[in-house]
């Protein structure tokens, strides 16, 4: 069986909020290393990979592999019943047809308990190859969100060009064109506001802005986001957490 207690409901709320629009129904794969998820969106253009490591829970018990098929809109409704500072305990049997959630508030001794029905979801797992990316760009989450939002007003696509000087996001559409360039820089007082580019070779790739805007729903998970690019492979957008990550992969647009 699974028993996993997380100190702060807000962590789980933010993770689900980050992915629910992209992958409304998905399997949470639980085993002794933690709770993981891998799912493609309906159009198979983007893939979400999430991990909440066992050491982010206390206690954490899961002695065999359990897949929890969850409708994330249903889970969101139940998680709204938890306050951000509540502890959440997740419980499920070995072959479960429901997931039990207990929310506890130690301050006012309030305990609430919910069960949500699980679904059978036939989901194939894809092998994600270990990739040495040509460019890896770390920038403030809020900056990335702003760039995606701004450029999505002009165009459906953005070209991301990484050089050792920095990264340039550019787009063109019916009303005109636009670009934002971030030069590599280090903010000594606030390192999370720095822009860092690790580069082995220059990269220039084009992606759909609609998906990037969607990925930015994960912005509350981390102060920085890392974009990893190589020519002709999907972009990796990674939000790291203390005990896990949310990664989005986005297939590029290529010349016809």
């Amino acid at each position: 069986m699974l028993e996993a207690r997380i100190e702060q409901a807000s962590v789980l709320k933010r993770v689900i909020e980050a992915i629910k629009d992209l992958v409304p129904d998905c399997n949470f794969d639980c085993n002794d290393t933690g709770i993981a998820l891998q799912a493609m969106d309906n159009s198979h253009v983007a893939l979400v990979a999430m991990l909440l490591r066992a050491d982010g829970f206390s206690p954490y018990r899961c002695d065999r592999n359990i897949a929890l098929g969850i409708n994330l809109n249903s889970l969101t409704k139940v998680l709204r019943c938890a306050q951000n500072e509540d502890m959440i305990t997740l419980k499920a049997d070995d072959a479960p047809d429901s997931l039990n959630l207990v929310f506890e508030n130690t301050e006012n001794e309030r305990i609430s308990e919910y069960d949500i029905k699980l679904m059978d979801i036939d989901q194939e797992h894809l092998g994600i190859p270990d990739t040495e990316y040509s460019a890896s760009i770390t920038l403030p989450t809020a900056e990335f969100q702003r760039i995606c939002r701004d450029l999505s007003q002009l165009s459906e696509s953005v070209a991301i060009e990484a050089t050792k000087e920095g990264v340039k996001f550019s787009c063109s559409g019916d009303i005109g064109n636009g670009s934002v360039t971030l030069r590599t820089h280090q903010n000594v007082d606030k390192p999370e506001l720095s822009t860092k580019v690790d580069l082995t070779e220059p990269v220039n790739l084009t992606f759909s802005l609609k998906y990037l805007v969607n990925f930015c729903k994960a912005s509350s998970l981390s102060q920085t986001v890392t974009l990893s690019l190589s020519n002709e492979v999907p972009l990796l957008v990674e939000y790291k957490m203390d005990n896990g990550y949310v990664r989005f992969y986005l297939a590029p647009k290529i010349d016809e």
């Binding site: 894809l126 092998g127 994600i128 492979v233 297939a251 290529i254 016809e256």
Partner: peptide, 14 residues
């Protein structure tokens, strides 16, 4: 123009 590719053309089922 550019054409959108899919994830399945890069990552294969396990």
């Amino acid at each position: 123009g550019k054409q959108q590719t899919t994830i399945s053309s890069f990552f294969t089922p396990k």
